[in-house]
Nucleic acid binder design. Sequence first.
DNA 1: CGGAGCGTTGAGACTTTTCAACTTCCGTGG
DNA 2: CCACGGAAGTTGAAAAGTCTCAACGCTCCG
Lengths: 218, 218
Amino acid sequence: MACAAREVAVCASFTDGALSALHAIGRRRTLHAGQVLIWAGDPSSVCANLVSGVLKVVREDLDGRTQIVGLLFPGDFVGELFVEQASETVIALVDADLCLYSRRALEPALTAQPGAEALLLRQAMGTLTEARRWMLMLGRRHAPEKVAAFLLDMHRRLGTGDQVELPMGRGAVGEILGLTIETVSRQMTALKSAGLIALPGGRQVRLLDPAGLARIAG
Amino acid sequence: MACAAREVAVCASFTDGALSALHAIGRRRTLHAGQVLIWAGDPSSVCANLVSGVLKVVREDLDGRTQIVGLLFPGDFVGELFVEQASETVIALVDADLCLYSRRALEPALTAQPGAEALLLRQAMGTLTEARRWMLMLGRRHAPEKVAAFLLDMHRRLGTGDQVELPMGRGAVGEILGLTIETVSRQMTALKSAGLIALPGGRQVRLLDPAGLARIAG
DNA sequence: CGGAGCGTTGAGACTTTTCAACTTCCGTGG
DNA sequence: CCACGGAAGTTGAAAAGTCTCAACGCTCCG
C-alpha cells in the first residue's frame, strides 16, 4: 500500500501487520487550499498525518484577533489528543493530502502499539521546541528581523535553489509574525530595495543574499 | 517513601515496584532562588520532576535578548528529552525541590515502563497548548492586556484569596510578556490607579476587581 | 468592462522603547 | 542607631517602531 508518509509519520513505528490495523481505522482525504479541517471549539474528534501540503494552526481571541501558532508540513501530526474540545483551527494553506483518523479509534491504537507513543512524544517535544523558538521571535524581535528570519525558515523548508514559493499570502505571513499585512509588505519591499531578495511575482521569493538576510534575522 | 510529586508527576504512572527502580536512578535536589539547573548549550544530560517551587525556562538570542518561554510548576517535567544539547536555560525563580534524573538513565526507563511515555505525551501536549496560548498573547496583545492577563494567570496558579505573591520581579515579568521592565511597571501603576489591583509591597498583588482585569485582558 | 482579491504606498496616530533621573526598600557596617 | 550602598521599582520626556486608515495599482476572471 503506497503511502508517501509511510516512513516519516507515526506509521513508521508500526510494523506492516499493525499498519494494516491502522489503515482499517484511517482514511485518506484531500484538502483544498483554504479548506478547514478542524474548527476551534468543535469536539476534538479527528487527528491525522499530513502526507503532503502545508496546514496552518490558528488561535483566535474573543475579539477576533488571530495568530497562527503553528505550520504543519508533511510527516507532521495533526490534531489534539487527550482533549475533548479543539482549541485551535486547522486550515489548509495549499492543497494537502492527509491520513485521517478518528481520535476515539486512534488513541487506543497508540496504546496498543509499543513505540507509537514514544514517537509522538518525540515529535511533540520537537514541536514544543519550535513553538518556543517562535515565542522568542514574537516577543523580542522587530519587524525586519521577523520577516528576514521567516523567509530563511520558509526557504529551508520549502526552497528549491535560491527560490521559495510561500504557501501563504501577506496576510497569513502577518498572522504568523504578529504583524499587520502592511508592515509585512513594507519589510518585503525594503528587503527588495536593499537587494537582499527579489520578488518575481505571486508568492515567489528569491533569496539573493542569504547571508545578509541571516545578519538581519539576528 | 514520601514524595510530594508521587501523584502528579511521571511517577504517577509507575507501580510502586517500578517506582523503586526509578528512585534508584533519581535523586533529590534543592535549588535556591536564582540558581541555574540547566544551561542552554550544555549537553542535555539531566531531567527532573519539579516537586515544589517555580522555575523559568529561558531562551536567548545571539544578541543577548532573552525571552521566558515557559514557567514550570510542581508536577511539571523539566528538561529536554531526545536531544543532545539543551536549547533552553532553566533557572529557579524561588527555592525549589526536584527529583533529578540523568537523561541517559531515564529514557530507557520510560520505554520499559508502559504508560510512562503516554503520560509524558499528555503533559507535552498540554504544555504545547499552553505555549500556543502564550504565543497569541505575545503576538497580538497590547501591554495593558498582557499585564492584566498575566496577573489573572498567576493568581489562578499561585493565588490565596484575592492575593498573589509573584514569584519574580518586574524584569522577569517583562521577559515573560515581551515587554520592558518600565512598561510593566507603568501598566501595574495604571491598574493600581484604576483601582483594579493593590500593591501592598514587595511582589504581593491584590486583585481588587478580577472581573475588571478580565475585561482588560480580553 | 467591471469587480473582487491581493499587494503596495503614504501620512498621521498611537504604543512601546530608550535613556535618564529619582525613589524605595533593605541589609550592612560604621 | 543611623548612614551608606546596591538592587529593584517608578516616573518623565523624547525617540523609534508599528498600526490604522485611506488611496491606489495590479491581476485574474466573470
